[in-house]
Design a protein around this nucleic acid. Structure first.
Lengths: 140, 140
DNA sequence: ATAATTGCAAATTTTTTGCAGGTTC
DNA sequence: GAACCTGCAAAAAATTTGCAATTAT
C-alpha cells in the first residue's frame, strides 16, 4: 500500500486531494492517459478541472513521481516511477502490461551507449502486439 | 539510393511531388517531427499545406512506408520503415540515432511475449540520455 | 502566515475535416 | 477517365496560461 501523501511530500509537492487521487488511480490502473485520468478522478472529485490534471502531470513528471510512456498511434500514458521495465502494448485495446526483467538487456544497452559515448539515463522498451484477451475476441 | 516513387507505388500510393519530398527529407535526416517536416519541405514546395503533411504521414504510416517513433517529453518523430533497431534519444537536443542490433534481445523479447500469450508484432526501444555533442557543450 | 495549488475562462497550439480544383496512373 | 491528391479555410481537439479564491504546511 503506497502512502501517496508521503510520496508527494518527499518530492517537494503538497499532498492535495486531487494529486492523491491521480496517484491512486494510476496506481490501480497501471497506465493512464490524461483523458482516462480526468474521467476517473472527476468521479470522486466532481469540481476537478482538466487544467489541474495537465498541470499536475507535468509537475509530477518533472519531480520524478510519474513517468510518461509514449505509445505509437495513441496518446501517451503515465505510470508511477519504478524500476525500468518492459511494456507489452496491445495495439487493439491499448492496454499496457509491465514485465519486470531488464537484467538481461542491461549489459547490451550499456555497451551500446558506451560505444557512442552516449550518457545513458533511462531505457524504454515497448513491445507491440495483440494481448491474449483481444486474440480471443477475434476468434468469435 | 532509394527510389521513392517505386516505394510509394509498391504500397498503393501515388507518387506525388509532396510525398517524394517528405520521404527524401526523412531519408536524409533520419527522424523528423511533423513540424520539422513542414518547415523543410515547404522550402522546396512553397505551396505545401500543413494539412497535406498530416494526411500523408497518417497514410504512409498506415501503409507501412513510415513508422512513428514516440518520444517521452517531445512530439513523435517519423522514420522510414526498416529492420527493427534501437534508438538513442538525446534529451537535450532531441536528436535520435539508430543502432542496428536487435539480435541479442530478440530471443528474450520473444520469450517474454510467449509467456503472456502476447502476439508480438513490433519492438521499439528508446534509450534516453545525453549525446556526445551535447555533453561537450555542457563542459564549456 | 505564506507559499503553493486549484478551477475557471480564455488563449494557443495541434490535428482533423470537407470540398473544389488539379494530378497520377 | 477514374480514382486519388492537394490546398484552403474552417472546425474540432488538445494543451497552456493568467488570475482570484482556496488550501497545505
Amino acid at each position: 500500500m503506497i502512502d501517496y501523501a508521503a510520496l508527494l511530500n518527499d518530492h517537494g509537492l503538497k499532498a492535495t486531494f486531487q494529486r492523491m487521487n491521480i496517484l491512486r488511480q494510476i496506481d490501480q490502473c497501471g497506465h493512464m492517459s490524461v483523458e482516462d485520468l480526468y474521467e476517473e478522478v472527476v468521479k470522486v472529485h466532481p469540481s476537478l478541472s482538466l487544467a489541474t490534471i495537465y498541470k499536475n502531470i507535468i509537475l509530477m513528471v518533472e519531480k520524478g513521481v510519474l513517468v510518461e510512456v509514449p505509445i505509437a498511434g495513441r496518446k501517451s500514458k503515465y505510470e508511477l516511477s519504478k524500476e525500468d521495465h518492459i511494456h507489452l502494448v496491445c495495439t487493439e485495446c491499448g492496454d499496457v502490461e509491465d514485465k519486470m526483467c531488464f537484467d538481461k538487456t542491461d549489459a547490451l544497452f550499456r555497451k551500446l551507449s558506451e560505444d557512442e559515448h552516449f550518457k545513458l539515463n533511462k531505457r524504454q522498451v515497448n513491445l507491440y502486439g495483440i494481448c491474449e484477451a483481444c486474440q480471443m475476441e477475434h476468434v468469435s
